[in-house]
Amino acid sequence: MTDRASGRTFEDLVEEGASVPTEGWDFSWFEGRASEARPSWGYATAVAVRLGAAEAVLDIQTGGGEVLDFALAQAPRRPGLAVATEGWPPNVAKATAVLRPRGVAVVASPEDASLPFADGAFDLVVSRHPVEARWQEIARVLADGGVYFAQHVGPGSVHELVEYFLGPQPDERRDARHPDRERRAAEAAGLEIVDLRAERLRIEFYDIAAVVHFLRKVIWMVPGFTVDAYLPRLRALHERIAAEGSFVAHSTRHLFHARKGTGARSGQV
């Protein structure tokens, strides 16, 4: 079947979606093929403001370094020390290329490993969409009065697409990232929650290539996804998009602003 909007066949679109590189968190390829509303708080810009008051900064799971790169470019002043971690080797290479010119050291560190830094080493820790917030480690590397400022993926994010491929999911999976659950874990690690906001945002996929690329890039949505394994469902979804114009889903995001202890530091934000 041919996509009426583009005149391209299902096979052409799937082949394209399966061939686009997945390194980093640059989503510019999706322009015109998918859209996602952005949270009202403007995470990257907010990080830039906080960088101006920080002395030692850690970006956890930096991806390809794109967000930290943007924030450093916009910051009123740069911190004296900036470090980023990343666990996926292709992203480590990309982040190093992006961030080294900014004076940022990128450390290869598995997502489930302890952070390879001394206690109290940073007055600002940031992270955009960590796979899992390891609160005890975050609290450990923060100095007294230091701040954790991050944007997390919320519960049931893009569940419409996940359940299209996997069927109804258990409540445990949909609630695993609930902000109230994460608040309790952060507080148990000794962090004080200064601000916690949550938003539900509309996503639209305009062709099947965007769906394929998204599922290859965000691998935890449909674990083990391959085109061959889900070819019949992909074809049916392609036909649905052609008939309806798009596939609509919703992402969930929450903004964490937490502080360790009550001590004041020059880098407190």
Rank of each mutant, 00 (worst) to 15 (best):
L166R: 15
Y148R: 02
A95Q: 06
L124A: 09
W135N: 08
Y164D: 09
R140D: 01
D171M: 01
L142A: 10
P101K: 04
A189D: 06
A113D: 14
V147P: 01
D180W: 09
G156W: 09
P116K: 07
Q136P: 07
G120V: 02
E163K: 06
H178C: 06
V107M: 09
P155E: 08
S157P: 03
P130R: 03
P90H: 13
P130N: 10
D112T: 15
H129I: 00
A108V: 01
H178A: 15
G167Y: 13
V104P: 12
A143S: 13
P155Y: 02
V126T: 14
T85P: 10
P89M: 07
A95R: 02
E137N: 03
V147W: 06
L124Q: 04
A188W: 05
Q151L: 04
L166P: 03
K94Q: 15
G154T: 08
Q169F: 03
V106M: 04
R181V: 14
L161F: 02
A118K: 14
P130D: 10
G167E: 10
F117P: 00
P155N: 00
A108T: 06
S109W: 03
S114G: 12
D175I: 14
K94E: 11
E172K: 03
A108F: 00
V131H: 08
V147Q: 03
D112G: 02
R173Y: 14
A143Y: 00
R173K: 15
D180P: 06
D180N: 06
V141R: 07
F117I: 08
R102G: 04
L166D: 13
R181E: 15
L161P: 10
E187D: 11
T85D: 07
A93F: 04
K94Y: 14
N91L: 03
E192H: 15
D112M: 04
L142K: 01
H129A: 06
F122G: 12
P90W: 12
A189G: 06
Q169V: 05
P170Q: 09
R134W: 06
L191F: 04
P170R: 03
A95G: 01
S127L: 01
G146Y: 00
E86H: 10
G167A: 13
A93G: 07
P168A: 11
A133L: 11
A108E: 15
D112E: 15
A93L: 10
A143K: 00
E163D: 05
D175Y: 10
D180F: 07
R173D: 14
L142R: 01
A108K: 08
E132T: 08
A189S: 10
Q136S: 12
I138T: 12
A108Q: 11
A143L: 03
F122L: 12
W88K: 04
Q169Y: 01
D112N: 12
R140T: 12
A185Q: 15
A189T: 02
A97N: 04
E172R: 11
A186L: 15
R174M: 13
Y148Q: 01
L191Q: 05
A105S: 14
G103A: 09
L161D: 05
